[in-house]
Design a protein around this nucleic acid. Sequence first.
DNA 1: ATTATAGCGCA
DNA 2: TGCGCTATA
Length: 526
Amino acid sequence: QMSRVIVLVDMDCFYAQVEQRDKPSLWGKPVGVLQYSANGQSGLIAVSYEARPFGVKRGMTANQCKELCPDIEICLVPQGEYADKADIQKYRDASAEVFAVLGSIDSRIILEKASVDEAFLDCTAYVESRVTKVREETIQRLLDPACLPTSFIVDGKEDEKDEDETEDEEETVDEEARLKRKNERIEMIRKRKIEEFIEKCRFDDEFLKIALAAEFAERLREKVREKTQFYCSAGVGNNKTMAKLVCAAHKPRKQSFIPPGSEVDVLRNTKVSSVRGLGGKLGRSLTERLGINTMGELYRTPSSVLTATFPDNAPWLMQIARGEDYDKVDSRVLQRNLGVGKNFPGTMAIYTNMNAKFWLNGLTKELRKRMADDKIKHRRLAQKVVVHVTTDVSTSKSVKVGATEEKEGRLFEKLWPVMQSMRKGPGEGWKPPIFNISLSAGRFLEGLPSKENSIIGWVERRTKQLEEMEGKDAVEKLNRDAAAEEKRRLEREEMGEEEGEGEEMEGIFMVDNLDDDDDDDCLIVE
DNA sequence: ATTATAGCGCA
DNA sequence: TGCGCTATA
Ligand SMILES: Nc1ncnc2c1ncn2[C@H]1C[C@H](O)[C@@H](COP(=O)(O)OP(=O)(O)OP(=O)(O)O)O1
Ligand SMILES: [Mg+2]
Ligand SMILES: [Mg+2]
């Protein structure tokens, strides 16, 4: 089949950049983002590039990283409102800003949200439409050094000759000058390789399509930077696996692409564990059972051996080793489910009925807030909530269905019995002890009942105004304010009795009236 | 390390 | 469809 052109965009030290933007004095400084949990368990979940040369790594405690990098600035992940837990909403909001840019460029591009900070883009249709343009003009444009200013070719021949540091013959006293000359040489090699690549584009459309996607990615990244202040990196390849792999080759603030046909060379010395899908048990068992450490070794393993050892995975493994991957870019920017959860490790485990109820209650409130946000923002309602309880040995899980629509206010009453059904022990105690509770809402039904439309309509009009006047941040806040109001409405409903439709409508009318008060952002006037 | 998501195979 | 399990950020 026709070859595809895939781009993977991944934000650089994403949460750290969010904190740097929040507090601009942190730009250019070593920054770590620390996730607390009052358990005393806490670790870094993001580390700025300035801190990485010190050896600071994700997972380290504040003390550990202070030892390696005394000047590191530690930022804390916000805490939840209802439960003593981390709340990463601010990073989701920042992610939404980035995706607004990614989705606004060209309607022919298929966009898949792969995580809070990365996206796959299928640019095939877009580049196909540009391959047909006058070739010489395109080539001249691409040859301009300003066209691919942060691009690197990755062909698997990197450590052949002068590419890496061949130490200077002469003894230099001036460390700075030495470094400068080294960088100049790296930049020279970079430019030469790009030129070689572009020259191939004259007669080879496969090369040209990659180059056009790289040009596109340069512009896209610049636009992300303009609109959000965040830097990112990108990888370009013929499939998701290669795009993702090559993105990591040059980071931060850079992008990389593979000359068509060099995939196997790029993979040759790649550790299996760094390939998407092989970072876990499968990759480990490749090493343990067949002694395979690199993708080159996997490539050379006879298919009979692979089939005998991994019958289910052998076909996929052989494709991936050849640099082939037929996984499609799935046009999807919204999450399929949303959840909250908390660990209770070791001695923090939950042993009592009361404690179980306490945490389920807090987590339910956090979930309900998320559901209210999602409802306003995406106009959809979760049809299913899953309660997951991890105990001693077996991780038990149970689900709960039921039209959650409009019943969010009674969520806890619904979930508590589900949770109790997982209790084995009688009386006050809870057996077996619980090490994790997580809740997740999903199976969304698109669209809202028409009775919802008043508040939605208000948000829509207000969104337009704010976008013009104040930008994306204000819009995110507006959505949350509206969700908060929605939540309060549900709480009133929960409190009490039948609760008149009148009061409800009144709240919304008041909101409606606010429309003309153009300087008032507040939704609630009670 | 902790807290999120997504997707697969099986019954 | 529910559940356990795997993989990833
Ligand atoms: N294991 C984890 N647990 C919790 N949060 C995580 C974990 N891994 C990553 N995150 C969060 C914080 C990261 O800033 C964000 C994006 O992850 P990721 O892209 O892997 O790293 P990064 O963006 O911090 O650095 P890089 O520049 O290497 O991409 O997701
Ligand atoms: Mg990243
Ligand atoms: Mg990432």
